[in-house]
């Protein structure tokens, strides 16, 4: 595999840190798309998963992330209807269908792509404790478990995106 890192050649590598704090499909997709695109452009890319962002790298949840119609005024329906049982599943199905039509890979496929592109995935240690999510519940693609100081140093001097 071609290594993306330009450091070895002594060139300056630009960095990108994407912090994901939400676990709904409409938040996870853009985070991964931005990270993967950054990697194709030669950036050194890190993703940090905190709070509900941890759901995105949870083995049991990564393939069943949802879109919430409640509290989302962008949905093409009166917001109150989002509370009806089954509405979340329906909105999720709709979104998945639309994404497939635009030839977008699944979230898990995007993670595999990210790894292939050299993106580093970091889980937040505090969130893992608070949400009772031990390392073995996370997908294999995760590189390590870190804290805020490590995360900030990974993003130092680069672009930081918080979702």
């Amino acid at each position: 595999m071609t290594q993306l890192k330009t450091e070895e050649k002594g060139e300056q590598t630009s960095r990108l840190l994407v912090i994901l704090s939400k676990g709904t499909m409409d938040m996870v997709y853009p985070a991964l798309m931005i990270a993967n695109t950054g990697a194709t452009m030669g950036k050194e890319v890190h993703m940090f998963f905190t709070f509900w962002g941890l759901d995105a790298i949870n083995k049991r949840k990564v393939d069943s992330l949802k879109v919430a119609p409640v509290g989302n005024p962008g949905m093409p329906m009166p917001n109150i209807l989002g509370m009806i049982p089954g509405m979340t599943a329906m909105a999720t199905r709709m979104m998945k269908g639309r994404m497939a039509k635009a030839k977008q890979p699944s979230v898990h496929e995007l993670f595999k792509m990210a790894k292939d592109l050299g993106v580093k995935l970091h889980a937040c240690s505090t969130t893992m404790e608070v949400m009772n999510t031990p390392r073995e519940t996370l997908i294999d693609e995760v590189d390590d478990v870190v804290g805020a100081a490590t995360m900030l140093s990974l993003g130092e001097g680069g672009q930081i995106i918080f979702i």
């Binding site: 071609t2 798309m33 993967n36 695109t37 194709t40 635009a102 030839k103 977008q104 792509m113």
Partner: peptide, 17 residues
């Protein structure tokens, strides 16, 4: 054709590699 961002970039990058 029919693929949207970042699909074309990803495909291009794979070919580039």
């Amino acid at each position: 054709r029919g693929s949207f961002c970042p699909g074309p970039i990803t495909e291009l990058f794979k070919a580039y590699r």
